[in-house]
Amino acid sequence: MQGIDPHAPVVRFHNVGMRYGGGPEVLRDISFTLARGAFCFLTGESGAGKSSLLRLMYLALKPTRGVTALFGRDLVTVARRELPELRRNIGVVFQDFRLIDHLTALENVALPLRVGGARGDDVKKHVADLLRWVGLANHIDSYPATLSGGEQQRVAIARAVINRPSLLLADEPTGNVDDAMAMRLMYLFEELNRMGTTVVIATHNEQLVGKFDYPRLLLANGVLAQDGP
């Protein structure tokens, strides 16, 4: 992609502040850097601003102040028509899944590939394999409305990782599954991370965080409690 520096940090935030509309600042003075291949948790209690910070990273929102850079590109300098290219390098698991209701699990997961211009049956096979891997072998052609919360969550995860993004942002990705499935999904994220994907997982599941030895960004009331990695 044009203008991407492979050696630059994948994410760099400096003194970032953000407010919704005319409301109060929900994020203040956020500064951190994520190197290529980093893996970290983003924790903090409900309402601390985890989802908001992720939204800044997956380019759904713009900061009201400060510097944000992705893949070495200062986002102020990125034109709107360049956003799709950047976003294709970012996989997102939304806290509320955001699956498309009238598409099957398979079609939902294939969407990032279709949007990127891919066609054909190898795509289909690839997608079906991934769905089997996350335990949805029997639900490949099911519609989201007929799936349980945990099943929908796994479809959302499959969609986020299908094109091996450079940056994976997962918002509470294990919130609706049992511990065994949570570990299986964490293993998927670690696998991706080993292949070079930078991973950020927002969660308030301390138990899960405790099982791994990854650095954490701790948000409290919209500020980073300790300076991140």
């Binding site: 380019l59 759904a60 799709p84 976003r87 997102v92 955001r98 498309i100 990032p112 949007v115 969609r159």
Partner: peptide, 16 residues
């Protein structure tokens, strides 16, 4: 709007 937002976020161009 909800669907077009998701499409945008996974990298769809306006033309798509």
């Amino acid at each position: 709007r909800a669907v077009t937002d998701v499409l945008h976020l996974i990298g769809a161009r306006d033309q798509y």
